[in-house]
Design a protein around this nucleic acid. Structure first.
Lengths: 139, 139
DNA sequence: TTACTAAATTACAATAATTATAAATTAGTA
DNA sequence: TACTAATTTATAATTATTGTAATTTAGTAA
């Protein structure tokens, strides 16, 4: 997720790409393409949603970020490309990283002849914040 | 996934619902709504895609079947509602059940304060058939 | 600096899965 | 047999994403 990586991939360093990279760098919010677009639009009025999708597609294809399909309607993106689980809070709808040694699965491996190259792990439940909020409202 | 279950849920036993139930019973193919629709259409020419979606929605909501979101474009449905992993072959695009004790995760549980009620496990790779086919073609 | 060119961006149209709507039909019951 | 709420149906609407074709631009080399 660095400028250097873009160069290595033979990609042009356009302002749009740099802006998207910059927004994603260290971002833990798992934004969707549209959220990225909306956040950058004020600073880059000419920015097109297609460019956002295009850039995300390239970066995901290069393994620089991962798609998170934990929500039914739209895709979300995570600049942390290392394998880790994701958690969707059913109350606030936020997506969190959930990196737990106890529930870690390391690909590649082979089960019953199925050659597993990759795997995704999605958890659904209630996040700590919403649990606390529920308690304060009298359980 | 039985007629009895429909009754228990207070649902009317319409021919459409019975046909969908019957098609899903023991089905290991993880069909999409459209596939179900296309398979039943010849026998039930008046069948509407909306009815298929509606029925699947009800059954999934009642925990009688599970949605499989392993493919990017569309949802698939599995009449086996017991927790188990799914495998998508990147070659033939088939979806398989992948029930492996070694990679089983039992919800509910709590990690770092996150209350996990449910989880899904998706595996991606090459299925045994396609591995064999690749070998026969001279690796 | 300037000119060149392939790559990238943009606006917009198109696609496709799913959902909503409202009228017509029907399963279950009295 | 008639009734009514539930269901089905056809169709329109929605919405995320992708395709397209014209315009712009980053990077390079004269």
């Amino acid at each position: 997720m660095t400028i250097q990586k873009l160069k290595e991939l033979g990609l042009k360093l356009t302002p749009q790409r740099l802006a998207i990279l910059n927004l994603l760098e260290g971002n833990m919010n798992h934004p969707s393409a549209e959220e990225i677009y909306n956040q950058l639009k004020p600073q880059y009025p000419s920015l097109s949603l297609a460019t956002v999708y295009n850039t995300l597609e390239i970066l995901a294809g290069a393994g620089e970020l991962q798609e998170v399909r934990i929500k039914s309607d739209k895709r979300h993106f995570d600049p942390n490309s290392a394998p880790h689980g994701h958690f969707l809070c059913r109350s606030c709808e936020s997506i969190y990283d959930l990196d737990s040694g106890a529930y870690e699965i390391k690909a590649p491996f082979n089960v019953n002849g199925y050659q597993v190259e990759e795997c995704t792990l999605y958890f659904y439940g209630i996040c700590p914040k919403c649990q606390a909020a529920a308690k304060n409202n009298g359980n």
